[in-house]
Lab assay of single mutants.
Amino acid sequence: QVALSRTQVCGILREELFQGDAFHQSDTHIFIIMGASGDLAKKKIYPTIWWLFRDGLLPENTFIVGYARSRLTVADIRKQSEPFFKATPEEKLKLEDFFARNSYVAGQYDDAASYQRLNSHMNALHLGSQANRLFYLALPPTVYEAVTKNIHESCMSQIGWNRIIVEKPFGRDLQSSDRLSNHISSLFREDQIYRIDHYLGKEMVQNLMVLRFANRIFGPIWNRDNIACVILTFKEPFGTEGRGGYFDEFGIIRDVMQNHLLQMLCLVAMEKPASTNSDDVRDEKVKVLKCISEVQANNVVLGQYVGNPDGEGEATKGYLDDPTVPRGSTTATFAAVVLYVENERWDGVPFILRCGKALNERKAEVRLQFHDVAGDIFHQQCKRNELVIRVQPNEAVYTKMMTKKPGMFFNPEESELDLTYGNRYKNVKLPDAYERLILDVFCGSQMHFVRSDELREAWRIFTPLLHQIELEKPKPIPYIYGSRGPTEADELMKRVGFQYEGTYKWVNPHKL
């Protein structure tokens, strides 16, 4: 086992960053958080920038500027975001240094004079007029057009580079997404736009490419001749908990499936790229999406959770019991969808996408189930092999396979070949997804960000279904809070070829 401390991990990262040409360590950078008073800024962006600063992973002359409508001070920003920093008493001095680099400007999102004030403020910072500028839009999409237009007109660096990070949702359907994309691309070049999907920053999602293309053993079996089906799962054990009003506007397909799960599907299904260059990788992902037809209604199961009468606390409440959810809402909190990649490698292999709230566990994984062994000599005792990439929690890679049961006879039983990170790298604290992705933006690497043509294809696949749901308002199937979801989803999976045995229990190697 390799035991690495946080300091050692960050030392390795620093070495990698400083050796590259793309990370300008000594240049002045300004990180501007648009929507600095909001939840995302408070819980994710400010803490992430602090962790990067604490670990010495930001360029040395980096300033952080918050911008929002609320009249706040840096002290206010500190008060609301610091509880999420997880700072230790030993880091007190470092924390003071961090907040000394912070400033805040209040202004409207659609007022040109406010942006001119913001620009004057940035120019007044040390070497601010020639600094590289990175704008993070932690804002609702309704203000994107006004904000990007004003940034472009008043706040661009004339000497350094300018980059803009856009948070999902990128529209509600193909038409609104196209409108937003066309607007942003009329102001910024594609190499300046970073559409963030934080799932692409997760260690195991990034590991998929290495697993596939750096190991000879997987190449020959990664196709329709050997793989019976692919299941991509995202499960949350909690409901909307008072935030249903926002969720109800989008629903589970827009929230998770059309982005996170579809991105994971691309990494499983794509061909080997010409290189690890950002556009070479994204070219292959677009090719996969172009091979997927629009979702067919007979390959869809929609569910909505109801309270568990035997549960406790939140578990007793259904989705419609959330006071922020519109009365009688038919918005799905669970969806199972089957897609097919219609190309030579994957023809006929079902890709089953499942996601839901208020389920029995927290889990995100990719599961490849292989065909049955031909010419069975073990009297149907063999179960199908599976390769599982567990994204969260407890990152893991393992192969479910058959071995001989101890004893006199040739009785096979299920076991696993474990390729888990935790076994080799004991207690290594890896940077989280937002840390990686923000560092990628500083480096100018777009590999783990969504390109406009990729986004367009993703919406093309799901828009007809979303429009049909909005028009017909089908009643989702009720499922109990804390269950596996509607049984109809299991029946759909069985119908397209997935075999669920229920006889195997994964042993978490992190707890051995």
Rank of each mutant, 00 (worst) to 15 (best):
residue 453 D to L: 03
residue 336 A to S: 12
residue 495 R to K: 06
residue 451 R to D: 02
residue 368 L to K: 02
residue 313 G to V: 15
residue 355 C to M: 04
residue 261 L to E: 01
residue 422 G to S: 14
residue 417 L to Y: 14
residue 497 G to P: 10
residue 326 P to Q: 14
residue 501 E to L: 02
residue 276 T to W: 15
residue 341 V to I: 06
residue 360 N to R: 06
residue 417 L to A: 13
residue 341 V to A: 03
residue 261 L to T: 03
residue 494 K to L: 07
residue 374 A to C: 09
residue 315 A to C: 12
residue 287 K to P: 01
residue 350 P to V: 00
residue 299 N to P: 08
residue 319 Y to L: 02
residue 332 A to F: 01
residue 320 L to C: 13
residue 432 D to V: 12
residue 293 S to Q: 09
residue 299 N to R: 08
residue 511 K to V: 13
residue 305 Y to N: 01
residue 342 E to T: 08
residue 489 A to T: 13
residue 426 K to Y: 12
residue 290 K to F: 02
residue 309 P to Y: 15
residue 322 D to K: 06
residue 296 Q to M: 06
residue 485 G to Y: 00
residue 405 K to T: 15
residue 494 K to D: 15
residue 388 V to R: 13
residue 368 L to P: 02
residue 478 P to Q: 10
residue 510 H to A: 09
residue 396 A to W: 15
residue 300 V to D: 01
residue 496 V to L: 13
residue 274 A to W: 12
residue 290 K to I: 01
residue 367 R to W: 04
residue 506 W to F: 13
residue 260 H to Y: 15
residue 345 R to A: 11
residue 345 R to E: 07
residue 477 I to V: 13
residue 478 P to R: 10
residue 263 Q to I: 03
residue 441 V to I: 06
residue 502 G to I: 10
residue 417 L to M: 05
residue 454 E to A: 12
residue 405 K to D: 15
residue 344 E to A: 12
residue 307 G to I: 01
residue 445 S to D: 15
residue 393 P to C: 02
residue 371 H to Q: 13
residue 484 R to T: 13
residue 313 G to T: 14
residue 473 K to G: 05
residue 413 E to W: 06
residue 504 Y to V: 12
residue 333 T to W: 01
residue 344 E to C: 13
residue 260 H to S: 15
residue 261 L to A: 07
residue 383 K to L: 08
residue 414 E to Q: 13
residue 407 G to Y: 06
residue 508 N to I: 15
residue 365 E to Q: 05
residue 428 V to E: 12
residue 417 L to F: 15
residue 416 E to H: 10
residue 468 Q to C: 09
residue 337 V to S: 07
residue 325 V to Y: 03
residue 279 D to G: 06
residue 258 Q to S: 14
residue 300 V to P: 02
residue 337 V to W: 03
residue 293 S to N: 09
residue 284 E to S: 13
residue 376 D to V: 06
residue 484 R to A: 11
residue 432 D to T: 13
residue 289 L to Q: 02
residue 487 T to S: 12
residue 294 E to F: 11
residue 454 E to Y: 10
residue 365 E to S: 11
residue 418 D to G: 07
residue 472 E to H: 09
residue 313 G to L: 14
residue 416 E to R: 09
residue 443 C to E: 10
residue 511 K to R: 09
residue 432 D to G: 12
residue 320 L to A: 10
residue 503 T to G: 11
residue 292 I to A: 07
residue 492 L to T: 03
residue 340 Y to V: 04
residue 339 L to D: 02
residue 394 N to T: 10
residue 310 D to H: 08
residue 268 V to M: 07
residue 271 E to I: 00
residue 491 E to H: 10
residue 297 A to V: 15
residue 255 D to C: 07
residue 444 G to E: 04
residue 465 L to R: 02
residue 400 K to M: 15
residue 408 M to P: 04
residue 268 V to C: 09
residue 386 E to R: 01
residue 355 C to S: 09
residue 504 Y to M: 13
residue 279 D to F: 01
residue 294 E to T: 09
residue 330 T to L: 09
residue 310 D to L: 10
residue 480 I to L: 12
residue 425 Y to F: 14
residue 455 L to W: 05
residue 394 N to Y: 13
residue 391 V to A: 15
residue 486 P to H: 01
residue 392 Q to I: 12
residue 438 I to R: 00
residue 447 M to E: 12
residue 281 V to G: 03
residue 351 F to Q: 01
residue 256 V to M: 13
residue 421 Y to V: 14
residue 489 A to K: 01
residue 319 Y to E: 00
residue 405 K to N: 15
residue 400 K to F: 10
residue 412 P to W: 14
residue 352 I to L: 04
residue 400 K to H: 15
residue 395 E to Q: 15
residue 324 T to D: 14
residue 265 L to C: 08
residue 341 V to Q: 00
residue 294 E to K: 05
residue 377 I to T: 07
residue 439 L to V: 04
residue 439 L to D: 01
residue 331 T to C: 11
residue 488 E to N: 09
residue 303 G to T: 01
residue 358 A to D: 00
residue 326 P to T: 13
residue 338 V to G: 04
residue 367 R to I: 11
residue 286 V to C: 12
residue 347 D to R: 13
residue 422 G to A: 05
residue 388 V to P: 01
residue 348 G to L: 01
residue 265 L to E: 01
residue 371 H to L: 07
residue 500 Y to R: 14
residue 267 L to V: 12
residue 261 L to V: 05
residue 307 G to D: 05
residue 405 K to Y: 10
residue 265 L to Q: 02
residue 269 A to R: 01
residue 460 R to Q: 09
residue 393 P to H: 05
residue 487 T to F: 09
residue 256 V to C: 10
residue 396 A to Y: 13
residue 410 F to Y: 08
residue 417 L to C: 15
residue 339 L to G: 03
residue 505 K to E: 13
residue 404 K to T: 15
residue 302 L to G: 00
residue 408 M to L: 06
residue 370 F to D: 00
residue 333 T to H: 01
residue 386 E to S: 11
residue 455 L to R: 02
residue 470 E to P: 04
residue 487 T to Q: 10
residue 334 F to S: 11
residue 479 Y to A: 00
residue 283 D to Y: 04
residue 384 R to A: 15
residue 272 K to P: 13
residue 350 P to H: 01
residue 489 A to E: 10
residue 399 T to E: 06
residue 318 G to K: 03
residue 370 F to L: 10
residue 325 V to K: 07
residue 400 K to R: 15
residue 438 I to V: 10
residue 422 G to F: 09
residue 374 A to P: 09
residue 381 Q to Y: 10
residue 274 A to K: 07
residue 503 T to Q: 12
residue 295 V to M: 11
residue 271 E to K: 03
residue 494 K to G: 08
residue 341 V to Y: 01
residue 367 R to K: 14
residue 443 C to T: 05
residue 346 W to F: 04
residue 442 F to H: 02
residue 267 L to Q: 09
residue 502 G to K: 12
residue 400 K to W: 10
residue 405 K to C: 14
residue 263 Q to R: 13
residue 326 P to R: 09
residue 416 E to N: 12
residue 311 G to A: 07
residue 472 E to P: 04
residue 294 E to I: 13
residue 351 F to A: 01
residue 365 E to R: 01
residue 397 V to Q: 05
residue 440 D to A: 03
residue 311 G to D: 02
residue 335 A to T: 05
residue 392 Q to C: 10
residue 350 P to K: 00
residue 385 N to Q: 10
residue 405 K to A: 15
residue 429 K to N: 13
residue 286 V to W: 06
residue 322 D to G: 05
residue 505 K to V: 12
residue 332 A to I: 02
residue 294 E to P: 07
residue 439 L to I: 04
residue 274 A to P: 07
residue 432 D to R: 14
residue 347 D to C: 12
residue 494 K to Q: 13
residue 378 F to T: 03
residue 276 T to D: 10
residue 438 I to F: 09
residue 326 P to L: 12
residue 432 D to M: 08
residue 397 V to F: 13
residue 291 C to W: 08
residue 359 L to H: 05
residue 430 L to Y: 13
residue 473 K to H: 09
residue 320 L to T: 03
residue 423 N to S: 13
residue 467 H to C: 08
residue 470 E to G: 06
residue 391 V to G: 15
residue 458 A to M: 14
residue 487 T to H: 12
residue 304 Q to G: 01
residue 337 V to A: 12
residue 446 Q to G: 11
residue 488 E to A: 08
residue 282 R to V: 04
residue 444 G to F: 01
residue 279 D to T: 10
residue 336 A to F: 05
residue 366 V to E: 03
residue 488 E to Q: 05
residue 480 I to T: 11
residue 503 T to S: 14
residue 421 Y to R: 13
residue 458 A to H: 14
residue 473 K to F: 09
residue 387 L to Q: 00
residue 308 N to I: 07
residue 441 V to A: 10
residue 385 N to L: 05
residue 384 R to N: 13
residue 291 C to N: 08
residue 271 E to D: 11
residue 264 M to P: 03
residue 490 D to L: 10
residue 433 A to G: 15
residue 476 P to W: 01
residue 296 Q to S: 04
residue 400 K to N: 15
residue 450 V to D: 00
residue 415 S to G: 13
residue 327 R to G: 11
residue 377 I to W: 15
residue 498 F to H: 15
residue 307 G to Q: 07
residue 329 S to H: 01
residue 379 H to F: 11
residue 288 V to D: 01
residue 374 A to W: 12
residue 500 Y to G: 13
residue 476 P to Q: 02
residue 353 L to E: 01
residue 281 V to M: 14
residue 500 Y to P: 15
residue 268 V to E: 01
residue 439 L to Q: 10
residue 441 V to K: 01
